[in-house]
Deep mutational scan, measured.
Amino acid sequence: KKRTSIEVSVKGALESHFLKCPKPSAQEITNLADSLQLEKEVVRVWFCNRRQKEKR
């Protein structure tokens, strides 16, 4: 499966949402994916990866 490159503006939106809520619910992920026009899975994985980055 190909990697999804996320635009800078979208990254900013994801980042600001992450600061408010690092573990969004499935519903929040769906809403966020719809508003940013990304697949739910891409948003879910982004949050997962971002939480791991926070641990490092």
Rank of each mutant, 00 (worst) to 15 (best):
V43C: 02
E7S: 15
K1V: 10
Q37H: 12
I29R: 01
S16N: 11
S35I: 09
I29Y: 01
E7G: 13
V45Y: 06
I6N: 06
Q37G: 13
Q27D: 11
K2Y: 04
L36T: 02
K23F: 12
Q52T: 06
T30M: 11
Q37I: 04
E54M: 08
F47P: 15
F18E: 01
R3K: 14
K2I: 04
L19Q: 13
E39V: 03
S25E: 05
E7M: 12
I29E: 05
C48K: 10
E54A: 07
G12L: 15
A13P: 05
L32R: 02
E15H: 03
V42H: 05
V45L: 12
I6K: 11
S35G: 07
L32Q: 01
V8Q: 15
R56L: 14
E7V: 07
V8M: 15
N31V: 11
N49C: 07
F47L: 04
S25Q: 03
F18Y: 13
A13K: 13
L36G: 00
E39L: 02
C48P: 03
F18W: 04
W46M: 02
Q52K: 09
H17A: 11
Q27Y: 07
R56P: 06
R51V: 07
K40Y: 09
L38F: 01
A33V: 00
E15D: 02
K11V: 10
R50I: 02
V8F: 14
N49V: 08
E7P: 15
V10T: 12
I6T: 14
R3G: 14
R50F: 01
R50E: 03
S5P: 15
H17W: 11
T4M: 11
K40Q: 15
V8I: 15
G12K: 12
E54N: 04
I29L: 12
E41N: 05
R51C: 05
E39T: 10
K55A: 12
L19E: 10
R51L: 13
T30Q: 15
S16K: 14
L19W: 05
P22S: 05
K40I: 14
R50Q: 06
V42W: 09
T30I: 12
C48G: 09
R56G: 10
G12F: 11
R50D: 02
F47M: 08
V45I: 15
K40D: 12
K20M: 07
K40P: 07
L32D: 00
S35M: 08
V10D: 15
C21L: 03
V45H: 15
K20A: 07
K20Y: 05
E28T: 06
V10G: 06
E41H: 07
S35F: 07
V8K: 14
L19C: 08
I6A: 12
S35R: 15
K1N: 10
K1E: 04
K23S: 14
S25M: 03
C48V: 14
